[in-house]
Amino acid sequence: MSKLLRQGIEERRSYYAISNEEIVSKENVEEVVQFAVKHSPYAFNSQSGRVVIVFNDHHKALWDLTKEHLRPLVKEENFHKTEARIDSFKAGYGTVLFFEDTEVVKGLGEQMPLYKDKFGTWSEQASGMLQYVVWTTLEAEGLGASLQHYNPLIDDDVKARFDLPKAWILQAQMPFGKPVEAPGEKTFQSVDERIKVFK
């Protein structure tokens, strides 16, 4: 494994304190995401992943609507913690929204009925790989990011605001920006307990 690849994998972390300072151009972010979408693997090369990148007022509106969806679900006396967390995402430079196109997944099931019950699982696995590739490459560009899951709570409003197809199912949200605080310490379970090797 190349040193550069190892470093990118090792340094990818969850950054919750981010700012909207433009240390990477929007065009560069777009290029990174395009690269990830093009080269991430999919079962049967389905290419079912869909991505939306939001900046500026679109990014802020996303986190405002998320906050409003959470407000009735969290006790009023505890909401300040939720609000602070959402505002930390809103303070960032942008957000990557990950979707899966269920029409593609459904179509594959119809074409290959033998695997019909597997395509949903494979779709989610592919989405996870795409998220990881985007996350790692954003890190390599000097941006801090984290992976959030406020779906399906915000799905309908997100699709309405950005005029997205109903068949696109939101999988995750990745706010990103200039890191303004180091990530928390990461602990590791012994790899000897997690890996078996037979030679």
Rank of each mutant, 00 (worst) to 15 (best):
P179E: 13
P165A: 11
K38S: 09
E181M: 14
T136H: 02
E68G: 02
E21K: 09
A84S: 07
K90P: 09
V29C: 08
S46V: 03
L97S: 06
S190R: 09
L164R: 04
L147E: 08
T102Q: 15
V29H: 02
L130P: 08
D155A: 10
L73K: 03
K26T: 00
V51G: 13
E77N: 09
P41T: 00
N56W: 01
V33A: 11
Q7A: 04
Y150E: 07
K159F: 00
G94P: 03
P179H: 12
L114V: 14
L147N: 13
L170R: 07
S40K: 06
D163M: 04
A182H: 12
L4H: 03
I18W: 10
K81M: 10
G128N: 10
R161K: 11
F79H: 03
R71S: 01
Y16Q: 01
L73A: 00
P179V: 13
G49V: 04
Q7C: 01
G94K: 06
F55P: 08
S127Q: 15
F55W: 10
E110S: 06
G184Q: 13
Q7M: 06
S2V: 01
G144T: 13
E139I: 00
A84R: 07
I53C: 08
E83V: 04
F198E: 08
E141S: 09
E100G: 05
R13E: 01
E11L: 08
K199I: 02
R161V: 03
A17I: 00
G109V: 07
V96R: 06
K166N: 15
E68S: 10
N45P: 00
H149C: 10
T121D: 11
S19Q: 08
N151L: 02
L62W: 05
G142N: 09
I18D: 07
S2C: 00
N56Q: 10
T95W: 09
